[in-house]
Amino acid sequence: MTAPRRELIVSIVLHTVLVLGAIVALMPMAWMLSASVMPTGEATAYPPRFFPSRVTLEHYEQLFTRLDLGRYLLNSAFLAFTVTATSLVINSMAGYAFAKLRFRGRDRTFRLLSLGLVLPVQVAMLPLFLLMKQLGLVNTYWGVIIPGMASIFGIFLIRQYALSIPDDMLDAARIDGASELTIYWKVVVPGILPILATLAIWTFLATWNDFMWPLIVLSDAAHYTLPVALANLSGEHVQDTELMMAGSVLTVLPVLAVFLFLQRYYIQGIMAGSVKG
């Protein structure tokens, strides 16, 4: 067999496998979308069908009118935006300090912090709940926001990237008499924008998708996030397949949109963060 011919066969096999993989990766999402616009009962017909006989938006309508999902959508959006904004500031300040400022105890503090990476968050949850209760923050948005405002992972990500800021640049600003806060804001933040974008997307997705802690700390339906509300609904409306699929679409669509529009920053940041380690 000649080399180009062999290459062609290998290429066909390779791309067939890749396309099959893509179908498997997307199929559940595609069916979710399709079933969400099926008339009631059609998603549980036999034999199962993939495409709706006619497209209807009645389930979406029902979600917003009868089941108040608009409220949960707003809750989720508010929490995700707030946690993302505050954590960006707090983590980037700390990450920058660990990377570029010289102070006594830096290495020891950083090592201590890195221990936290192997601690599963669930170990903290029981006392955290009692603490939140003491502070009167159970069943408030703060109960979700405050524990999300700083993250060890975020500090690591920023520090790793900030190490590449040239010291000369910072020292030049100092000689010009700039305050440390000005340096952070005018020199450091513009220098680490790409990794800030990565961390912003990461935090937004993680907060939006988070389930266990919001489930624990938000017991009053008015404060539910979408995943908590959805899990609750799925218990009551287990038979309403099309309705549940509409709710799932509504939950997934915002994060999918964020990812698809900003994936350049997200994917590159994750890959860069892992290689340097």
Binding site: A25, L26, P28, M29, W31, M32, L205, W208, N209, F211, L226, P227, V228, L230, A231, S234, M244, M245, G247, S248, T251, V252, V255, L256, F259
Partner: peptide, 13 residues
């Protein structure tokens, strides 16, 4: 794409 989706939603799907 599956990695960025909401776990609760895809579990229901």
């Amino acid at each position: 794409i599956p990695f960025v989706t909401t776990l609760v939603a895809v579990s229901i799907v």
